[in-house]
Simulated scan of single mutants.
Amino acid sequence: MPPHLVTEDLAAYWTGRPAATIRRWAAEGRLTRHGDTKRRRNGVLYDLAELPAANRDNDTRELITPAEAPPVIDHGLLAA
Rank of each mutant, 00 (worst) to 15 (best):
L10C: 06
A19R: 08
A20T: 10
E28P: 07
R17N: 07
L45R: 05
A12I: 09
L10K: 12
D59G: 09
R24N: 10
N42T: 13
T32I: 14
G16V: 10
L10Q: 11
D59R: 01
A11L: 06
A49I: 11
A79C: 14
L48K: 11
A11S: 08
E62K: 15
V72R: 15
A80G: 10
L45N: 01
L77I: 05
A80C: 12
E62Y: 15
D74H: 00
T65Y: 00
E28K: 08
T7A: 05
G16W: 10
N42I: 11
H4V: 14
G29I: 11
N55Y: 02
N58H: 15
D59T: 05
A26R: 04
R23A: 01
N42F: 13
V6M: 03
I64H: 06
H4I: 15
T37D: 09
L77D: 04
P70W: 14
W25Y: 07
T32R: 14
A49K: 01
A53P: 09
P71L: 09
P70D: 14
D36K: 03
L5S: 03
L5Q: 00
E28I: 10
I22L: 02
P2E: 08
R39E: 11
A54S: 15
L78D: 07
D9W: 05
A11I: 08
P3Y: 01
G16Y: 08
P70K: 14
A80N: 10
R41G: 01
G43M: 06
A67T: 02
L77Q: 12
G35V: 11
A19M: 08
G35W: 03
A67P: 05
T15M: 02
D57Y: 06
P66A: 15
R61I: 05
K38P: 12
P71F: 09
I73D: 00
L51C: 02
T60F: 00
A26W: 04
L63M: 04
R17G: 00
L77H: 03
T7C: 06
N55W: 11
H4Y: 14
D57N: 10
A11R: 01
W25G: 00
V72P: 15
V72F: 13
R17F: 03
H34R: 10
T32F: 12
E62Q: 15
T60Y: 12
A53I: 10
R40M: 15
R39Q: 13
Y46E: 05
L48D: 09
E8L: 10
R39S: 11
I22Q: 00
N55S: 12
Y13W: 04
L78Q: 11
K38L: 15
P2I: 13
A80L: 14
V6G: 06
T60H: 05
P71K: 12
H34F: 07
A27Y: 00
D9S: 12
T21V: 14
E62T: 15
E8C: 02
D47P: 01
T37A: 13
H75R: 13
L31P: 00
L51F: 10
A79I: 14
T37Q: 08
A26C: 04
I22R: 06
A67W: 01
H75I: 00
E50R: 00
L45D: 01
A26L: 03
A12E: 10
L77Y: 07
E8H: 02
